[in-house]
Design a protein around this nucleic acid. Structure first.
Lengths: 338, 338
DNA sequence: TCCGGCCATGAAAACGTTATCATTTGCTGG
DNA sequence: CCAGCAAATGATAACGTTTTCATGGCCGGA
């Protein structure tokens, strides 16, 4: 983990070439204090001639200011994750910060700690952790106290400021919508729990309970679309399953494919609703009914929370936007609706 | 872009608390030189008690070693991009490096330069540029000389080591496959050019030429699936179009949807082939025939190139893996095949 | 018993920058 | 014409590490 010490030109070289003192070069670079036009020109010329670039380490050392923030996530390719990260990066860049990404591959405490240590071996102003899953929760626990930390999609139990996505409300809306269509109950294909509860699963359960509908066991839990596909094949012959709420759109797509292979038609025989509003969902056939979540906004809000923490030492505890149901073609009334 | 100067404990505090000299603390931390067990214990205790964490800036300053690499990309959410980045991150992390992500939102030179400058205002060991598109090419041009740089998916013209994906070969294979099925020619929905040529488009054209088939004009060029969708609606009534090679899978999905809305059946009336092997492609109906590309491997190879550059000062100029055609359901013989 | 050499340790220098403070210069106002 | 002040500049001191380099103690061999 090293770079050979082929150091580039330093501010001293620039000062010498321009025939000025070192602090003057610094002042030209930072524009903090006025410098006579003549000297400034000489300095600028020298900088360009030497291809000089200030050493960020030295600068950070003396100012004590950090301008990189670490993002901890268990995955960077899944739609929700990638979009949240893009939102964080965008907000951070606009504020003059740089984003460092570290993937937490597992929730095994020792491995998590090692990875977190690697990430924190670099000077960071603060940390944003994507708390969508157990690995995110583990990362949160492994972070040392005293570091500014916020969670994207966290909960009150984490003890850090968190920006949330009210996926419980989204799941309730989707479930209520399906019940309203005439389905006796709604089944659920879950996404792994990030703590003791998953908002989506909780919302689904609550909507069923409030409507007095039966709460069937969760069909399966996992991130892998292939499992959703297999699950669909397994439950295809169960006529009592007429509506399924999937933990995310990727799972919904694979689930629908399994149903298709088993000869079950969507939405005529069974309704499928996804979660997240994956950009491809609207182009599927049937187009996917889903719960839209604004992950990019979640990312931006997470960073805003961290920014507040850095500036004022405190941050509003939470901030939230409501997901919205997007009704497309994969959902409809149950087959034997009278 | 600041962090309030609430500095934490320094190595001096640790040394004082442990009753040893500063270098001894350093030696305990780095394990470079043996330290007596008794002192080591005292130091370790003091570190834990104070919650001491070495200042990376000071460390980087004195050693001159950098362990962060910058990744420049125009997007972090598109499948190919996100997966490549994940590959880079994985390889970097295993080698003890951290990756910093900066999004280059445009290919407008001035904006690119400003963003690159922001990224390089932090000490980096090297840079990996995702050169999938014009913005990537612009970033490559904006980078100062003398910095270790490699391109993922670059070309010889960039003047830097590059790991490639032989998408030209992939496009040729796909085109030849469609011609072999009996299609008189193959149409093409392109992805934006990253330089003067796009491998995919070039391969498509070459395969047609070599087979003596007519080379029709490119249907459209862009990243936006919605445009692909509209294009499909526009060309739906053209019976001469029986096979379309799309620049990526996202475009292929939207294109197929447009065909579906226009009443054209895939693959019976028209064949559609994508590019990249998006994980959802196999679950679509019809399942998408596509050209598989290993982006994660591309990312890992890119980092390996950079690692070589950092270690030895030189890197092999290129490295490549061949894409493979994955035949699924969205392609077949043309309708009026005799 | 004495001496050469090794081992653990500490003192001090160095890394490249910004911040603080003192100095010089030039100008204004009485 | 001089006191006084502001503006521009430079000298010097941090910042928190690691890396020499020097020192002192201890051990083994003669």
């Amino acid at each position: 983990m090293a770079r050979s010490p082929a150091r580039g030109p330093s501010i001293i070289d620039v000062a010498r070439l321009a025939g000025v003192s070192v602090p003057t070069v610094s002042r030209v670079i930072n524009g903090s204090v006025p410098v006579s036009a003549e000297r400034r020109d000489r300095v600028v010329t020298a900088i360009q001639e030497l291809g000089y670039r200030p050493n960020g380490a030295a600068r950070a050392l003396v100012t004590g200011r950090q301008s990189v923030i670490a993002v901890l996530a268990s995955n960077t390719t899944r739609y929700g994750y990638a979009t949240t990260i893009q939102g964080i990066e965008e907000a951070a860049r606009l504020a003059g910060f740089i984003v460092m990404i570290t993937v937490i591959e597992t929730d095994e405490p020792e491995a998590v700690r090692a990875t977190v240590d690697l990430a924190l071996s670099h000077p960071v102003a603060g940390v944003v952790v994507l708390r969508f899953d157990p690995a995110g929760a583990a990362a949160l626990r492994a972070l040392p106290a005293g570091l500014p930390v916020v969670a994207a999609a966290g909960g009150k139990g984490d003890g850090v400021p968190h920006a949330v996505l009210d996926d419980m409300a989204g799941a309730m809306a989707a479930t209520e919508y399906l019940l309203g269509l005439g389905h006796r109950t709604v089944h659920h294909l879950a996404v792994p729990a990030s703590g003791r509860r998953v908002g989506r699963t909780t919302g689904w359960r609550r909507a069923l309970t409030e409507a007095g509908a039966e709460v069937p066991p969760v069909l399966d839990t996992g991130w892998d679309p292939e499992r959703a596909h297999r699950t669909a094949l397994q439950i295809a012959d169960r006529a009592d399953i007429t509506a399924v709420l999937c933990g995310n759109d990727e799972l919904a797509v694979a689930f629908m494919r399994g149903l298709h292979e088993a000869g079950r038609r969507v939405p005529d025989e069974i309704s499928v609703v996804g979660f997240d509003d994956h950009p491809l969902g609207r182009y599927l056939t049937p187009a996917l009914t889903t719960v839209r979540q604004d992950f990019a906004d979640l990312g931006r809000r997470s960073f805003a929370l961290l920014g507040g923490l850095l500036d004022t030492g405190e941050a509003e505890k939470t901030s939230s936007t409501a997901p919205s149901l997007v009704i497309r073609e994969s959902s409809g009334p149950p087959p034997q609706a009278h």
